[in-house]
Amino acid sequence: MGNRRPFGQLTALLTVWMLFLGTAVAAQQACRVDTIYLRGDFGTARFSVDVADDAAERGQGLMFVEKMARAQGMLFVYESPQSVAFWMKNTLIPLDMIFADARGVVQRVHANAVPGDLTAIPGGDGIQYVLEINGGLASQLGIEAGAEMRHPSIPADNSAWPCDPA
């Protein structure tokens, strides 16, 4: 049969290409409040998020959540850049915390915060956005300092990766 690829390999290659193309196209669409994108050397990642943008919502966070879908998370939005620290009181699942500055640039990733631990987890100074996702996922995807967030909460005129105009 020579150099012919089996049908299964061709199908697999087409599927990978379609997933790549779909992610690239999705990242160019207008931003939505329930979706955040991250990009970096790893490529692009997309998460469905709940947004905690006031003191009460930030205080509740993901407490008492028993499980979370793989591509789900919570985005904490502060009014201005500041020093932030999180803890895991009443949190039932391990979380990765991704701390970003006012431009949406990731400054620090804290991996696998321990459920129920009351030890403060500092994000650093000048933090305005914190994304919490399932523990271990940031490492699996390659998300690290320097990655950029894209979300409508990050003003376009200051964003490292602004939303496209609608």
Rank of each mutant, 00 (worst) to 15 (best):
M149C: 00
A24E: 13
A111Q: 12
C31H: 04
E57K: 13
D34Y: 02
L92Q: 13
A71N: 14
Q128F: 02
G8R: 11
G8Y: 10
G22E: 03
T35C: 00
S139R: 14
A100W: 04
M97C: 01
V65K: 14
M74I: 08
F86L: 15
A24M: 12
E57D: 14
Y129W: 04
P155W: 03
V65W: 01
Q82F: 01
M74P: 04
L92C: 08
N158H: 11
I154P: 09
P115W: 11
A147P: 03
M68Y: 06
G136E: 14
M88V: 07
R39D: 05
P6G: 11
A138S: 14
S153N: 06
P152S: 09
D41I: 01
V16Q: 06
A160C: 03
N134K: 14
A102T: 00
A160V: 08
L21V: 10
S153M: 10
L141P: 02
W87E: 05
A145F: 06
L131V: 04
R103Q: 15
L137E: 09
D34H: 10
P152C: 08
V33W: 12
L95Q: 03
V51F: 10
L141D: 01
A52L: 08
V109R: 12
G136C: 11
T35A: 07
D96A: 13
K89G: 12
G116T: 12
A56L: 14
L62P: 11
V25Y: 10
N112Y: 01
P122L: 06
G40Y: 05
M68I: 12
M149S: 02
A166P: 15
Y129M: 03
D117W: 05
I98S: 12
E144G: 04
L95Y: 04
G136I: 12
A52Y: 08
G8W: 12
S139E: 15
A166L: 08
I121G: 07
P162R: 01
R58M: 09
Q82C: 02
A145L: 01
D54I: 06
E132M: 04
I143W: 05
A138L: 07
F86A: 01
D53G: 04
G73N: 09
M1V: 12
R150I: 02
C31P: 02
A56H: 13
P6E: 14
V65A: 05
G59P: 01
G61W: 07
L19I: 13
A102F: 00
L13E: 15
S83Q: 14
G142T: 09
I98K: 10
P94K: 00
E66A: 13
A24Y: 05
R39Y: 03
G135D: 11
G43S: 07
A120C: 00
Q60A: 14
A113P: 09
R108C: 00
A113K: 00
R108Y: 05
L92Y: 09
A100R: 05
A71P: 00
Q107T: 11
I154D: 06
G59K: 03
F76G: 09
F20H: 10
F47K: 06
N112V: 02
A156T: 10
V114P: 00
G142M: 07
A85I: 00
A52T: 06
A111I: 04
D50W: 07
N90F: 02
H110E: 15
A71I: 01
L137T: 11
L92W: 03
V51Y: 08
G61V: 07
G123M: 12
S153D: 13
K89Y: 05
F76D: 05
L13F: 05
L118H: 03
G22I: 05
E132T: 03
L14R: 13
G123I: 10
